[in-house]
Design a protein around this nucleic acid. Sequence first.
DNA 1: CGAGCCGGTAACTAAACAGTTACTTGATGG
DNA 2: CCATCAAGTAACTGTTTAGTTACCGGCTCG
Lengths: 225, 225
Amino acid sequence: MNDSGGNGEKKRSRRPSAERTAQRDPERTRAAILDAATREFAENGMGGARVDAIAERAGTNKRMLYHYFGDKEQLYLRVLEEAYVGIRTAERALHIGDRSPEEGIGELALFTWRYFLQHPEFLSLLGTENMHRARWLRQSVRLKELHSHLIGELSDVLERGKKQGVFIETADPLHVYLTIASLGYFYLSNQYTLSTIFGRDLIEPTHLNAWERHIVHVTLTSIKR
Amino acid sequence: MNDSGGNGEKKRSRRPSAERTAQRDPERTRAAILDAATREFAENGMGGARVDAIAERAGTNKRMLYHYFGDKEQLYLRVLEEAYVGIRTAERALHIGDRSPEEGIGELALFTWRYFLQHPEFLSLLGTENMHRARWLRQSVRLKELHSHLIGELSDVLERGKKQGVFIETADPLHVYLTIASLGYFYLSNQYTLSTIFGRDLIEPTHLNAWERHIVHVTLTSIKR
DNA sequence: CGAGCCGGTAACTAAACAGTTACTTGATGG
DNA sequence: CCATCAAGTAACTGTTTAGTTACCGGCTCG
């Protein structure tokens, strides 16, 4: 991780005047910038995010930001890539093929909903990127292989379900995933306008639980024979 | 509308030198600004939209924009309000209660999908507003009554379906509407990232038609007994 | 030990931005 | 035919912004 390697613990100076300057830690600074940028881009979008605000949130300054990430656009793309890596990595750990087809799909629906719920910044980043017609994501070279695994595994589960006669023949893996993602994404990312216009606080635990059950119900009834 | 009222049609000058300066038309200028602002805000969000760009798109200048709308925030709220009025007005014309319960719900699903498809700027504005946690929509005084009609009419249709034994007893009007809106919104507003990561062009007519049928199918199977 | 490198700071710059002001033009009514 | 007023123009202002530059200080290795 750290190039200057070895005994990284002994760096602390004993001089009392040095207490404001924390020990140097490139990895931590880099991670802090990425984390701060994730929050800033999620809250304000690519256009609305401020480089100064990111530096301040990270407890550092612009010089370091440009040093580690080049410029605002490259930093944004990094944030977006990391967000995708996050969800796809967690998804793989599910192993939805280890259960019965019905349980596997239900599990994926539950996982997706809960991941969205715990990672509002991911939803927001997707929204921003789509407003810009995937301008930056399209340039990404890292994200070609990442998503095929999901569709492949989902496809296997559906095939098994069809052979067992529990799923309809027309069930399509991409459609099933889009259904699950739609129901989670819209409810959460649009909760503020929806709560306002319909006068119901959608983020309340009661409603949240009801919608979780609804997602699983809708997904399964739409593909069950 | 126009304070100086009366005979607004006879204003045209016959002087040939006046051809570059179009006739004065406050209503048209106002509408042009609102239209230009809708596109600019939809494409760039509240933070990313540029007042100069709006004026240029409208074929006018900032002075007129500030004259008619006050400032950028008030203009943005106006755009948002008009967008909501647009969809809710079109929805009312449907009269989903005039058909059988099943047909009524199917009709609402089809309408919503097609409206979203034809008004991408509406979806984008919702996205922007939600990123800001409905900061401006909450301030709107015009939009309290607008949405209750939809839920009321939907509720009636569901009740009728339950009495006829075609719908399950647990079907909830808000859930049904959220299901329909989710499936349309996510597919369209996230089409760019989805097409990129899954390598399938979702805006192609074949896929569009398949998803339209899917929405109706999912909505109805989720509430049918 | 001291040269140089690396993590980090802060002040700066050129451009872009929202909002304003001084002005022009042309229609209208007395 | 001129005083008035509203529609419209364009240049300006103070502030904010992305990106840069000059500098600091401590660690490490020759």
